[in-house]
């Protein structure tokens, strides 16, 4: 045990800054990136920050690791319960990452893009097509798999008649 003072306070303040910084950077990345894979990366960062914050909540001044036999018996030890929670949370986190990556693979296989704005357009077109409406505010060419409008039979008949006549007269 060393002498405790303002130094230990600054140590824990530095740690809190790191944990909160990771959480905030991860949140910024999740809400502001336009690529789904980068959102997953931001989720990884925010996870690391949350884990650091949890372990930090069990830290005590002058306490050592909760393993018996490596130091004297009367030395205080840090709280083991947050460490156990974080231990399981890390392993769960990698499972969640794998699940997210596989969902991204599925999205990429179906839509061919991972850009959030392009995905939003695709989704709007799909929803409009399923609902049988025209896409909102667009007279553009049919996108997705929307069928072309059916040809007008009367005009077709007139045109074929005209070409027949010109072929006959020439």
């Amino acid at each position: 045990m060393s002498a405790m003072g303002p130094d230990s306070l600054s140590f824990v303040v530095v740690m809190y800054v790191g944990a909160f910084g990771l959480l905030v950077i991860g949140a910024i990345g999740m809400v502001m990136s336009n690529h789904l894979f980068r959102m997953v990366l931001a989720l990884v960062i925010a996870e690391a920050g949350a884990n650091l914050l949890l372990v930090l909540s069990g830290w005590r001044d002058g306490a050592l690791a909760p393993i018996l036999g490596t130091h004297a018996a009367d030395v205080p030890m840090v709280d083991p319960v947050p460490q156990v929670l974080v231990l399981t949370a890390i392993v769960i986190g990698v499972g969640v990452q794998a699940l997210a990556v596989s969902v991204l693979l599925k999205i990429h296989r179906i839509y061919g893009t991972l850009d959030v704005r392009a995905l939003r357009r695709h989704l709007e077109l799909d929803i409009c097509r399923d609902a049988g409406m025209a896409p909102e505010g667009s007279r553009e060419a049919p996108a997705g798999e929307r069928p072309l409008p059916p040809p007008i039979p009367v005009a077709d008949a007139l045109r074929t008649a005209a070409t027949d006549q010109t072929g006959a007269t020439s």
């Binding site: 005590r60 083991p80 319960v81």
Partner: peptide, 14 residues
């Protein structure tokens, strides 16, 4: 509190 957790459960387990 900075670095002073209450540690009721953890203390009992320790």
């Amino acid at each position: 509190g900075f670095g002073e957790p209450p540690m009721r459960v953890g203390g009992a387990i320790l």
